[in-house]
């Protein structure tokens, strides 16, 4: 028996909207730790790791570890039927091939049930070791989204270079080149506008812009984004959800031919 109650359906809606275009089908794993998902995109270039911690739920009952295969597009369709301030309850009986999403309006005057078919997904689970990254940048999530979108219109790849002074995003395309430097800056009006750099070594890596753009669909989840890079390692783009957990995107770099 599984029963998870979350007061803000809006959060789950945002989570689904941020990954449904990157990953078609995925297993949601439910354990004492929380409600989690790990999935690669179809070309195995990017990986999504989501954790919604059990203590972030209003009610969390998971009798034993269970894995539920879901089509994320269909799940997103069902969640779009909930209002952001509805309470959502996710329910599944042991051995059942369906999951139920129940939405309750804040005044309890509207209660809806959506039952969705589960699917068998044979997915590969990767072990991601805890790593010390050579460079970590924390910056405004909306600024990062803007940069990825702007550079994506000019070139297919983005070079991200971190130095002590700042982070530089560069691209090159048929029409020309573009460079954006975001300097380290903590003297800001709003905490989320700060650009903080922790760096052991300068790092410069090249990534496909379309994946970075896809990751920024998670921007509504957090004010800041954390970008972690090391040479010869996938970049990690993380959106931390206050009290709830995180959405992490891993992207393998491109290398010179």
């Amino acid at each position: 028996m599984l029963e998870l109650r979350l007061t803000q359906a809006g959060l789950l809606k945002k989570v689904l909207e941020s990954i449904k275009d990157l990953v078609t089908d995925a297993n949601f794993d439910c354990s004492a730790t929380g409600f989690s998902l790990q999935a690669m995109d179809s070309s195995h270039v990017a990986l999504v790791a989501l954790l919604l911690r059990s203590d972030g739920f209003e009610h969390y009952r998971c009798d034993h570890n269970i894995s539920m295969g879901m089509n994320l597009g269909n799940m997103a369709k069902m969640l779009r039927c909930a209002s952001d301030d509805d309470t959502v309850t996710i329910k599944a009986d042991d051995g059942s091939d369906t999951v139920t999403f129940m939405f309750e309006s804040p005044s309890q005057d509207k209660i809806s049930d959506y039952e969705m078919k589960l699917m068998d997904i044979d997915s590969e689970h990767l072990g991601i070791p805890e790593a010390e990254y050579q460079a970590i940048v924390r910056m405004s999530a909306s600024e990062f989204a803007r940069i990825c979108k702007d550079l994506g219109t000019i070139g297919d790849t983005v070079i991200i270079s971190v130095t002590k002074e700042g982070v530089q995003f560069s691209t090159k395309g048929d029409i020309g080149t573009a460079n954006i430097i975001c300097r380290k800056n903590t003297a800001v009006d709003k905490k989320e506008e700060a650009t903080v750099i922790e760096m052991a070594e300068p790092v410069s890596l090249t990534f496909a812009s379309r994946y970075l753009i896809a990751f920024t669909k998670a921007t509504p989840l957090a004010g800041q984004v954390t970008i972690s890079m090391s040479y010869d390692m996938p970049i990690v783009v993380e959106y931390k959800m206050e009290t709830m957990g995180y959405m992490r995107f891993y992207l393998a770099p491109k290398i010179e031919e």
């Binding site: 195995h44 270039v45 990017a46 790849t157 996938p234």
Partner: peptide, 14 residues
Amino acid sequence: QGVQLSITEFYCST
């Protein structure tokens, strides 16, 4: 513009 590496080249199956 470069060779795209795969995520499975970095992380192993568990």
